[in-house]
Amino acid sequence: MNCTGLSKFKILVADDSRPVRLVLKTYLAQLGFEPTFAENGTEALQQLTDKKFDVAFMDVYMPEINGTEVVSKVRNEGITIPIFAMTTGDDEEMLAKCLDCGYNSFLLKPIIKTELAKIISKLTDSY
């Protein structure tokens, strides 16, 4: 999949792990996107409230403000973009908590490029 024609599609990646950010930067570049990055929850909240994004991929556990708090706050602000929880935990209770606080779905770590491409493809089909 190559979405080079969708360069205006705005993606936020929020994760405190530099290796995760680098992997996602590489994968998304290969798919034709230049994402914006946040290294902690405070940056993610600021980015989401200041700029318009089409989708966000957000780590659940980040410093300063965790991902679930960020999602709850942006949902309370009326921001309705799809937000995917990025997590290593796949237990049902944790995933249900993510959905309850406002995440739309999740992407398990380690991130698999084909799974990321499927999500992006579904989102950009109607773009």
Rank of each mutant, 00 (worst) to 15 (best):
M1N: 08
M1Y: 09
N2S: 14
T4L: 11
G5H: 14
G5C: 04
L6K: 15
L6M: 13
L6A: 14
S7K: 15
S7Q: 14
S7R: 11
K8G: 13
K8M: 10
F9A: 05
K10F: 06
K10C: 11
I11W: 08
L12I: 01
V13I: 15
A14D: 07
A14M: 06
D15N: 10
D15R: 03
D16S: 11
P19A: 07
R21T: 05
R21Y: 08
V23D: 07
L24A: 04
K25G: 04
K25Y: 02
T26S: 12
Y27M: 15
Y27R: 02
A29N: 14
A29I: 02
Q30A: 13
Q30E: 15
Q30N: 15
Q30K: 15
Q30R: 14
F33S: 03
F33C: 07
T36L: 07
T36G: 00
T36Q: 09
F37C: 08
A38R: 02
E39T: 10
N40S: 02
G41R: 05
T42D: 06
E43T: 05
E43A: 12
E43M: 12
L45G: 06
L48R: 08
T49S: 10
K52C: 05
F53W: 13
D54W: 03
D54T: 04
M58A: 06
M58R: 12
D59L: 09
D59P: 11
Y61A: 12
P63G: 08
E64P: 00
I65K: 08
I65H: 00
N66R: 00
E69Q: 13
E69L: 08
E69T: 12
E69Y: 03
V70T: 06
V71W: 05
K73Q: 14
V74E: 01
E77P: 00
I79A: 04
I81V: 07
I83E: 03
F84G: 04
A85W: 02
T87G: 05
T87M: 10
D90G: 03
D90T: 14
D90F: 10
D90I: 09
E92L: 12
E92N: 09
E92C: 01
E93Y: 01
E93K: 06
L95V: 14
L95T: 05
L95R: 05
L95M: 05
K97F: 00
L99H: 09
C101P: 00
G102A: 02
Y103Q: 01
S105C: 01
K109M: 05
P110L: 10
K113S: 11
E115S: 12
E115A: 10
L116G: 10
K118P: 01
I119G: 10
I120Q: 12
I120C: 12
K122M: 13
L123F: 12
L123S: 13
D125T: 13
D125P: 00
S126C: 06
S126L: 09
S126P: 00
Y127R: 09
